[in-house]
Computed example of a mutant assay.
Amino acid sequence: MTVSSTPELEADRQYLIALIEDEAVFHGDFTLSSGKQATYYVDMRKLTLDHRAAPAIGRIMLDLIRGVDDIVAVGGLTLGADPIANAIMHESSRTHRPLDAFVVRKEPKDHGRGRQVEGADVAGKRVVVVEDTSTTGQSALKAVEALRREGAEPVAVAVIVDRKTGAQAAVEAEGLVWLAAVDLDDLGLDAQ
């Protein structure tokens, strides 16, 4: 369980947890992007693209990464990371340390400049990879790999919901800091 740094942010976090429980947790038989089977699915895209949740997500995630020094941008593997990075970018514009956003394509473009990382120039810069939910950490690590090829220095992975199924260990094994805003205990769910 993570607690936000101020009562206002903790209220945002509790509001987001209630939205997740009410609107983003689905029970049944699901195959996750990792290939693992699960009896529930946390569909965070339903909320990262929702006008009620997106501002709170921006504030919560910005608070979560506040202790990571000298970062200039946030982003991750498209599509899950895109609305999170944008929410953080918009929220950070109100602070003394605004952050840019980037998008990591699954594969480099086969036309134009042939880029895999779009948006903020990340070469030589410290960045944080964001993700909506994580099971094994492989999506985040794919983004980390692409960022490193671009000359960026990924220093952390920050997720909204940690499924507590190995992603943290995989990310930390790559020398990155693991940060999660909400975990299964907060949602009353068991790790699978």
Rank of each mutant, 00 (worst) to 15 (best):
T165H: 11
D63H: 03
A143S: 01
A18K: 12
L99Q: 12
G75W: 00
V128I: 09
S4L: 13
L47A: 05
V117C: 03
G67R: 03
D29H: 13
A140Q: 06
V72Q: 13
V104Q: 06
E131N: 08
R113L: 15
L176P: 10
S4E: 12
R113I: 05
S93A: 13
W178A: 04
A81F: 00
S33C: 00
S134T: 15
I84D: 03
S34N: 10
L32C: 07
V72D: 12
D100H: 12
D186N: 10
V171P: 02
L176A: 02
Q192S: 07
I65N: 02
Q116S: 08
V130G: 06
G28I: 01
S33V: 03
P154E: 01
R45Y: 11
I160C: 01
V144S: 10
A24Q: 04
R45M: 09
T39K: 13
R105N: 13
S5W: 12
I84H: 04
A156N: 10
K109Q: 14
Y40A: 04
A11Q: 14
A81M: 00
T48W: 02
Q168P: 04
K36E: 14
P108N: 13
K36T: 01
A158M: 06
K36M: 11
A73P: 07
A143L: 06
L99A: 07
A123I: 00
S92T: 07
A87F: 07
N86I: 10
V130N: 09
T48P: 02
A81D: 08
L147N: 01
Y15L: 07
V155K: 02
E23S: 08
L32H: 13
Q138C: 03
I84R: 01
D70H: 14
K142R: 14
L47M: 04
D110V: 06
R115Q: 15
G114F: 07
T39Y: 11
A180Q: 08
P108L: 05
G58A: 05
S134E: 14
V129I: 14
D121I: 09
H96E: 15
H27A: 05
I84E: 02
T95F: 04
H96P: 05
A156Y: 07
A24Y: 14
G188E: 00
I71D: 09
Q37F: 13
D82V: 08
L64D: 12
R66N: 13
I88T: 06
P55G: 05
H90R: 10
I88M: 03
I84G: 00
G28F: 04
R13M: 08
K36W: 11
I160H: 06
V161S: 03
A85K: 05
R66T: 14
A54D: 09
V155D: 11
G75A: 02
I88E: 09
Y15E: 13
T136S: 15
D190I: 07
H96V: 08
V117I: 03
R13E: 12
A140V: 02
A140M: 02
